[in-house]
């Protein structure tokens, strides 16, 4: 019996619950209080959203933004035809618009996911 008493006296439960509770309730107030920890959370959200935005910009810059340079360096492209239409005309109309819409759609999906992750973190889910 004495070994049971010794085991019951070990204070393991109490500190663990209090530690867990502060963590769940405090992220929002850490942000409100502008502590270093709160700043880490909001900066991580901004970073993930900015990385996503810069990624979209980079794809756009390399593909659409690269076209004038490509036309300049490889003028023969202007003479290639696809479905009877010169390639630059297709690239600068149907393809460009399709790329813009697809990039926008991918961006909205990922940006909402980043926000959901942040909300889950704050609401302790």
């Amino acid at each position: 019996m004495s070994s049971d008493e010794v085991r019951a006296r070990v204070r393991v439960v109490s500190p663990r619950t209090s530690a867990a509770r502060t963590r769940v309730t405090s992220i929002a107030s850490e942000i409100d209080d502008q502590t270093r920890l709160g700043e880490v959370y909001i900066v991580s959200l901004m970073r993930s959203q900015l990385r996503l935005a810069v990624g979209v910009l980079a794809v756009l810059a390399v593909t659409l933004g690269g076209l004038p340079l490509l036309f300049h360096l490889v003028p023969q492209i202007g003479r290639i035809e696809l479905f009877g239409v010169p390639l630059p005309w297709l690239l600068l109309s149907v393809f460009a618009f399709a790329e813009i819409i697809v990039l926008g759609w991918l961006y909205v999906r990922q940006a909402e996911k980043n926000e959901d992750d942040f909300s889950d973190l704050l609401e302790g889910r």
Binding site: V56, L57, F97, I100, Y107
Partner: peptide, 9 residues
């Protein structure tokens, strides 16, 4: 149109 994509992101 691309201007609106950058506005979006």
């Amino acid at each position: 149109t691309a201007g609106y994509l950058l506005l979006l992101v």
